[in-house]
Design a protein around this nucleic acid. Structure first.
Lengths: 351, 351
DNA sequence: GTCTTGTGCGGGAACGTTCCCGCACCAATA
DNA sequence: TATTGGTGCGGGAACGTTCCCGCACAAGAC
C-alpha cells in the first residue's frame, strides 16, 4: 500500500478545466459565437445567445483570465509598494495610515477591475520580475527613490507622490502637508497655545520635509521660535521618547502644545505627557497626525489630523485608471486636503 | 485642435515592448534558442548562449509574464481574503493580527515566487472573477463560510483553518487555540489568580469557539466558575466596554485576572482597569491575546499571547507550495503553537 | 565507406482567449 | 431575375511564451 493510497490517493483526478471550445462543442456552436454570447458582443440571435449562456452555466465554464489578459495586453494587475520601511519591508501594514491606504487602494482598484499585488517596501522590481503589472503604486517614496527610478526605466507607469512632478511616465497624488500643518498650528494657537512643539520623523519622505518646511514658515510668520524634535526611527518606542524629549523643557520653555507628525499610539502619547506632569488639555494641547482609531477612546479623546488615506487612494486609482484606459496624461497630479478632527485633547477648557 | 493634442497628445508613442522574437532576429537566432539561452535550458554552445543573453540585455528584453503563465497553466498568483469582517470588508488590515498575517503571507509567498492579491473580506469569487488565482488563502473563515464553499465549488484550492478538515481541495493551518488558553490560564493561576475572567468575541470563527470551549474545560478541571464576557462587535470601543463589564463585579466576585481574547489596544485596556480602580498587576493580572506592539510600551508592559501570524503564514504558504507544485495532499494541515510573552502586567508582585 | 551516437539549433504547435473578417442566407428593391 | 444591404454565425490569426520534436552535421566505431 503506497503512502498516497493509504491516505486516499488523488481523490479527484483534477478535472481539466472546461474551456470555451468545450462549451462550443457541447452547444453545437463555434467558440467565436460562444465568446460573443458570453461577452454580450457580436450579432447573435437571442436564442443562440441564451443557448450558449445556458450551456456555459451548466458546464461550469469560467473563462481563463490569463488567456484573456494575454490577448488584451493588460493583466489588470497593479503593484503596491511603499518607499520607506525599506529596513523592515513588511511592517508598513502595522502602521494605521498605511493599513488604511493599502486597504483603500485595493478596494478602489478592485471596484475598477484591477487587483492589487502586495510588494515589500523598498524592493526593486528585479525581486518580483515575472509579475505582469500594468502599473505600480509607490506610497511615500523616499528622496530619489530607486524603486520609482527602476520602474520608470522599465517603462512601468508609476503612481506616487508629488516628488515625481514633471517626470514622464509618473503620476502623483499627494496630501496637502503644508496646509495640514498650518491648520493644526492655527488651531492650537486659537486655543491659546504659544509654545507649540513639533515632533517629526527625520525622514526623506516628501511629506515630512514639507511638514518641516511649513512649520518653519508658520513659526516665522507668527514670530515664534521653532521648536522641533526629530525622531530617528519609526515605531512607538522612538516616537514616544521623542515626545518625552519635547516635553522635558521647563520654565518659560515649557511647551503648552504638542503636534506629533509621526505614527504613535494616542494613548501612549497621553501617558507620556502625564508621566511628565502635564494635564491634557489643561497644561498641554495635543494634536496627533494619525489614523489610529484608539484616539477616539482615550480620556480625553485625542485630536487627530487625518491624512485621509481613503481619499488619497481613491484619487490615485482614479488617475491610474484614466491613464491606463484612456491614455490621459493630464492633469498629472491631484492634491488631497487633510482633515482636522478636533477632540477634547486640543480644546483649552474654560477656567 | 483635438482634446488630445491640446493636452499634449501622446508624448511618447508608447514603445512597443521588445519580444522574444525581436531579440532572436537581432541576434540572428531562433526564438527557441533565445528562450533556452535565457532560461538556462536546452543544448546550446556557450557562445550562442552568451550572444543571446547579451542581445537580450542590450535590448532591454523583459519576458511577458502573462504569456509565460498561459503556457505554464499557472499564474503564480494567490488570493488572500479573510472570512470575518464581512461587514467592513477592508478593515481587517487595521487589526494588528491581520496586518501581520497579511504581510507575512505576502512575504513568504513572494519568496516562493507567488504574488499575493488582496481581496475584500467576506467577498465571493464572483466579485473578482477574472482573476486567475492558483489558490486562495482564507484567513479565519466563519462557520460554513460561503467564501470557502464558493471557491471549492469553483475548483480553487483553499488554504484556511482547521474547520475544513477532511474537505477535499481544502488545506489548513491553524493556531493551537486550546493550548493557548490553557497556557494563559495556567500562567495566571500560577501567579495567584483565582477568579480570572475571560473576554471573548461572540464570533463563529473557529478560533473563538475553540477558545470558549478550552476555557470551559479549564474552569471545570480546576473547579472554578466560568466567568466570561462576550463581546458582540469587534473594535476597541466594544471590547473595552466588554472589559469594563468584566471588571464591574464586586465583592467576592471581583475578578483578580483578566484574559482578553479580542483585539484591543493594550494601553486602553490598562486605562479601563484603572478607571475601575484596579492596580495592574497588584489587583489585577492582565493577559491580552494581541500582536499590538504598544503592549511593550505601556506601564506596566502588558503580557500578550501571540498567535504568531508569521509562523501561521509560513506554514500555510509552505503547504500551498507543496500542494500546488508537487501535488502533495498530505498532511492536510499543520498546527502552530502560540507564544505567551509574560510581562509585568501578569506577574504578581512580591508583597 | 557505412552505421551509430551525440550535439547544436530551429520549426511549429500549444496554452485559451478575442476579434477581424468572410461567407451564407434572407428580404427588399429595382 | 439580378442587385443590394443586412443579419447570423464561423474560420482562423494573433497575443508571447515554452517545449516537443526533427534535422543537419560531426565524430567515433566497425
Amino acid at each position: 500500500m503506497t503512502e498516497a493510497s493509504r491516505h486516499g490517493g488523488q481523490p479527484s483526478p483534477p478535472t481539466p478545466r472546461v474551456r470555451l471550445v468545450d462549451v462550443a462543442r457541447e452547444a453545437g456552436l463555434s467558440k467565436t459565437t460562444v465568446s460573443a454570447a458570453l461577452n454580450g458582443t457580436g450579432r447573435l440571435s437571442p436564442e443562440v445567445r441564451e443557448r450558449a449562456r445556458e450551456t456555459a452555466r451548466r458546464m461550469g465554464y469560467r473563462p481563463n483570465a490569463t488567456a484573456r489578459h494575454l490577448r488584451a495586453g493588460r493583466a489588470r494587475l497593479i503593484g503596491y509598494v511603499v518607499g520607506e520601511f525599506a529596513a523592515t519591508p513588511w511592517t508598513f501594514l502595522e502602521s494605521p495610515y498605511f493599513a488604511r491606504l493599502t486597504g483603500a487602494t485595493a478596494a478602489t482598484a478592485l471596484r475598477r477591475g484591477y487587483a492589487v499585488v502586495l510588494l515589500p517596501a523598498g524592493s526593486l522590481q528585479s525581486e518580483w520580475a515575472d509579475l505582469s503589472l500594468d502599473a505600480v503604486v509607490v506610497a511615500d517614496p523616499v528622496a530619489d527613490d530607486p524603486v520609482v527610478e527602476g520602474l520608470l526605466a522599465a517603462g512601468v507607469p508609476v503612481f506616487t507622490d508629488r516628488s515625481v512632478e514633471g517626470t514622464p511616465g509618473a503620476y502623483w497624488v499627494d496630501v496637502d502637508a503644508g496646509g495640514a500643518v498650518r491648520e493644526a498650528l492655527d488651531h492650537l494657537r486659537e486655543q491659546g497655545a504659544r509654545r507649540p512643539v513639533l515632533v517629526v520623523p527625520d525622514s526623506t519622505t516628501r511629506f515630512h520635509t514639507e511638514v518641516s518646511a511649513a512649520h518653519r514658515e508658520w513659526c516665522a510668520a507668527h514670530g515664534l521660535p521653532e521648536r522641533t524634535v526629530r525622531v530617528g526611527e519609526a515605531g512607538n518606542g522612538p516616537v514616544v521618547r521623542g515626545v518625552e524629549t519635547a516635553l522635558t523643557a521647563d520654565g518659560p520653555e515649557r511647551p503648552d502644545a504638542l503636534l506629533v507628525v509621526a505614527e504613535a499610539s494616542p494613548p501612549l502619547v497621553l501617558e507620556a505627557a502625564r508621566r511628565h506632569g502635564y494635564g491634557v488639555p489643561d497644561d498641554l494641547l495635543v494634536v496627533l497626525v494619525s489614523e489610529d482609531a484608539t484616539a477616539l477612546h482615550t480620556d480625553p479623546p485625542v485630536s487627530t489630523l487625518s491624512l485621509r488615506p481613503e481619499a488619497v487612494a481613491e484619487a490615485g486609482v482614479e488617475h491610474l485608471v484614466a491613464v491606463l484606459e484612456h491614455g490621459r496624461r493630464e492633469p498629472a497630479g491631484t492634491l488631497v486636503p487633510t482633515r482636522l478632527d478636533v477632540r477634547a485633547s486640543s480644546v483649552r477648557p474654560r477656567r
